[in-house]
């Protein structure tokens, strides 16, 4: 599966703008990467090269930082990002089932896969978003959905997909199959 279509186009002027704002010293490494990730949803290689070329931060420090912190990712994300909380409260109340049901409807069968084949959604596990009394919780984009069961997660995703005009690969499979049966 290739998500080449999701690769971001990096504008060097934009990266330079962040460098001008956040500084060129080594301590700017984390804020700079955060600015890049905020803009692209991940850390495109080209943006990282530009940072190394135009600051005092060297490649080993930058790559070291990028791979150390959970927030950063090196692969492109889908057009929409789903975060499933796996804090303690969410775990003991069945957060795993949210992943199972979301991955099912997104047609993600390979365990390593975190983005649907059509680039519509990426499912990410996060440590704890701090809404423990509303467990289990997931976020689609910025919106949080509280007190979920596996089926609820699926329902919210179907609704969301409809509003933003995305196709859910897993849902399509199931519909095709049903069509074939009758």
């Amino acid at each position: 599966m290739s998500n080449a279509s999701l690769e971001a186009t990096v504008d060097p002027a934009e990266v330079q703008g962040w460098i001008n704002n956040l500084g060129t010293e080594p301590s700017a490494a984390v804020p700079l990467l955060q600015a890049v990730q905020r803009a692209f949803g991940y850390l495109p290689r080209k943006a990282m090269d530009l940072i190394v070329a135009n600051t005092e931060i060297n490649a080993s420090q930058l790559f070291g930082v990028a791979t150390f912190y959970a927030q950063f990712r090196l692969d492109p994300v889908g057009r929409n990002l789903i975060k499933v909380c796996h804090g303690t409260a969410c775990h003991v109340q069945g957060a795993d089932r949210l992943n199972t049901s979301l991955r099912h409807i997104l047609g993600m069968k390979d365990e390593e896969e975190d983005t649907a084949s059509n680039g519509s959604y990426t499912v990410e596990d996060v440590a704890c978003i701090g809404c423990c009394s509303l467990a289990p919780v997931m976020l689609i984009g910025e919106q949080a959905f509280p007190n979920l069961k596996g089926a609820d997660a699926q329902r919210h995703l179907v609704k969301h997909a409809k509003t933003v005009g995305e196709i859910l690969p897993g849902q399509q499979d199931k519909d095709d199959e049903k069509g074939g049966k009758s």
Binding site: H86, G87, T88, A89, C90, H91, A127, C128, G130, C131, C132
Partner: peptide, 11 residues
């Protein structure tokens, strides 16, 4: 940096 899963006092 309240990283404990299951804690949200600082938040």
């Amino acid at each position: 940096d309240e990283g404990d899963p299951g804690a949200f006092m600082d938040r």
